[in-house]
């Protein structure tokens, strides 16, 4: 499997960021970003905690195929105790952020605590910095992405951030990545805002490897062809996920 084998644990109260080994037992038992992220959430959060308080944790999780050429592998999940339902909140989004978190060397990012003033997280392989975000607090995600990229002189940074809704605790606030992609469910943006975390910016050069490259690419190409030929694709291409709203509400 194409795991990087480590996760990044950031504590915003203490201002610390430490890599730790991925729990392979969990990774194998709870396959995919949703399962793995939920397990980490379950083991790291007190179910009775205030979802908008410092004891909630915010998790950015990738899956074993993330960062590879496999179809739809760009999806990553944002998890926390949901302020909207009080239950496990699991939202997911596409784009490139998840892949680049993994290229930086982390299968999962776990954020604990609460910063005393607005901050953003800058991840560049081994280098992880918690930096002040006063200048972008109160601005939208487009401006935030532009500001961070220009500040680090790296247009290839992939960024997941919140806008004013998340900052102000709107209970259905999104986390938006790559300008147009949103983890829109469960109020994950509100929880990110409650931690004074404006954005996570990631870039990595480590790449993702697979055990059997030839076999892997054979399956990838086969799946691409099957998906291209399957029905329903046109609706999604035309209307995005809107045609799926009825199904998702069930």
């Amino acid at each position: 499997m194409s795991w990087q084998g480590q996760i990044l644990r950031v504590n915003l109260t203490k201002g610390t960021a430490e890599a730790e080994p991925l729990n392979m037992e969990w990774a194998n038992a709870y396959i995919g970003e949703r399962g793995l992220g939920t397990k980490y959430l379950y083991e790291n959060v007190d179910p009775k905690c205030d979802p908008m308080g410092p004891d909630n944790v915010l998790i950015f999780a990738t899956g074993p195929l993330n960062g590879t050429m496999a179809s739809t592998s760009g999806r990553y999940a944002v998890l926390c105790k949901s302020p909207l339902t009080g239950a496990i909140g699991d939202s997911n989004s596409g784009g490139k952020f998840g892949a680049f978190l993994k290229y930086a060397g982390y299968d999962l990012l776990l954020i604990e605590g609460k910063a005393d003033k607005p901050v953003y997280l800058h991840i560049d392989d081994d280098s992880v910095e918690i930096l002040p975000a006063d200048e972008i607090w109160g601005t939208g995600v487009w401006h935030t992405e532009e500001w961070i990229k220009s500040r680090h002189q790296n247009p290839q940074l992939k960024i997941a951030s919140i806008g004013e809704a998340g900052e102000n605790g709107v209970l259905y606030a999104c986390v938006v990545n790559d300008l147009h992609r949103a983890a829109g469910r469960c109020g994950v943006g509100a929880v990110m805002g409650s931690k004074n975390l404006k954005a996570v910016a990631a870039y990595g050069t480590r790449g993702v490897t697979v055990d059997d490259p030839a076999k892997f690419m054979e399956v990838v190409k086969d799946t691409h062809a099957k998906l291209a030929a399957s029905g329903g694709r046109e609706e999604l291409t035309e209307g995005g996920t809107h045609p799926m709203i009825d199904m998702m509400q069930e």
Binding site: S2, G67, T68, M69, A99, Y103, Q156, Y203, G204, T205, R206, G207, V208, T209, P213, M217
Partner: peptide
């Protein structure tokens, strides 16, 4: 993947 053996846009 072809040149480095890993998926690595960098």
């Amino acid at each position: 993947f072809e040149h480095e053996g890993s998926f690595n846009p960098a």
